[in-house]
Amino acid sequence: MNNFFQTTIIVGLFASTIRIATPFLFASIGELVTERSGVLNLGIEGILQIGALVGFLITFRTGSHWLGVFGAGFSGIVLGIFMGWMVTTLKLNQTVSGLALNLLAGGIAFYWFRVVFADVGAENLPNLRIFQTARFPILSDIPYIGTIFFRQQWLTYLAFLSVPVVSYFLYRTRVGLQLRCTGENPRAVDMKGLSVAKHQYGALAFGGFMAGVGGSFLTLASSGMFIPEIQAGRGWIAIALVIFGNWIPWRILVVALFFGLIEAVQLTLQALNANVPHQLLLALPYLLTIIALCTAAGRSRSPLHLGLPYKRE
């Protein structure tokens, strides 16, 4: 194998890392805001799937990718508010509500897809052209760097942009402070005359929006097709990344990239016919995440009131 190929492999590896990290980043940053308000939303898996479907359907019908993305985000908001109704208004157990949401959303997505494309199965799977990757004058043509950073999907840039935006929102704005307070000490928020419920609804809506958009990345920017369960466990990883990232936006960015990198390394090793059982390579991202979690940096501190319904009295 000559030098040229080595370089392209490395460049490809980093470009893949960023792309693979994108849906995780969307879902994790959304989930971060949700958890900061004290709600653990385990329904991400279901929202990703609905987002993937809605994005696909709208784009398939209208031809507009961005309309699909907004539709997916909107469907995420709807599901987020539904989750809010269960955990904030009805004060149901958050764990079981999230799982119920997964079950329900998964069923709805599958059924909806069947109803819209009744002939699927007798014909080829409907698919569409994915988003064009971004091209920047000059920047995209820089050797190596251009390929890695400046030929990504527009949605990828949005995902990365969400990190400083959410960071600013949480730490530099009044509402962000109130939101964090809701997760730490809802009683104090309530005593100040602010609505705990409104903050949690808002956070869930935002989290749902992000997961919905993340879902649309799977269908509109990655694979160009929808199939049931297309999210394939990515929602669970996203939730784990929030904890791994210690509920801090920048650290979530780092761990999402770390996870993407291991995944990309795994795929590249397989592509190079590495003489290791491929199952071991596939398990690598999960094993390394556990190990990384155990290193000193892994000590996590969750919002104090995470997962508990706030009841007055």
Partner: peptide, 10 residues
Amino acid sequence: FGASEVIVTV
């Protein structure tokens, strides 16, 4: 190590 059991089990 203070690793969250949620992530490790997932």
